[in-house]
Amino acid sequence: MSATLTIFKREFASFFATPVAYIFILIFLVMSGVFTFLFGEFYERGQADLLSFFDFHPWLYLFLVPAIAMRTWSEERKSGSIELIMTLPITTMQIMLGKFFAAWAILGLCLLMTFPLFVTVNYLGAPDNGVILAAYLGSWLMSGAFLAVGICMSATTRNQVVAFISAIVICFVFVLAGSPVVIDLFQMWAPNIIVDAIAGLSFLTHFQNMAKGVIVLNDVLFYVLSIAVWLFAAYVVIEQKKAH
């Protein structure tokens, strides 16, 4: 545990040692603002909730999370520090978890920094703050799943651009799987069970309830499992490919 914490601290600090974290947080805040107020019609809806804010999160994460995940392993490979860290008395899984939690903490920080929105709705009306809290939690969980995909892609290559783009593509597939376009496409010919299975794999479907403040064990489990599976895949890739 302490080894994971050591890696976590180093990785977390390294986001702030370079402008990465600041720029990321800034872009996240600007983009979420744009989405909420311009496209989400926050005021026009006339409702004291943050649905218009959370609804856009999957699309926001689609581009932003791969950007923060892409350096995770690619940079270690490129600079050769992977050889240093993996010959220290620490396991690959400890490194993996340390890295994951550090980046996830940055994403959590981004969400925390959107508190002015929370203050605004509370000033304008009387929202159900339990719902908002649940949605925040759900959003953070979902970002973890995006992050795990990004870390896995980063583990496959020393090129950060390749890691970024492949992560976007895979995340896109997982988001899109639950969108009406895809569901309709399959509904025309496939049996319901397949349609449900495809929709069930979507990051989007599992977030929809959470954005409304409904936390179902099912959805939580889905994201936790997604994180576990993708991180394990990253672990396997690193163990297999560290030689190259």
């Binding site: 600090a13 390294s14 040692a17 600079s79 050769g80 520090s81 050889e83 240093l84």
Partner: peptide, 15 residues
């Protein structure tokens, strides 16, 4: 028990 200097002496350059 091992001290290892890898080829090219990699380190975390942001530290």
């Amino acid at each position: 028990n091992i001290g290892y200097l890898p080829e090219g002496a990699p380190a975390y350059s942001d530290m």
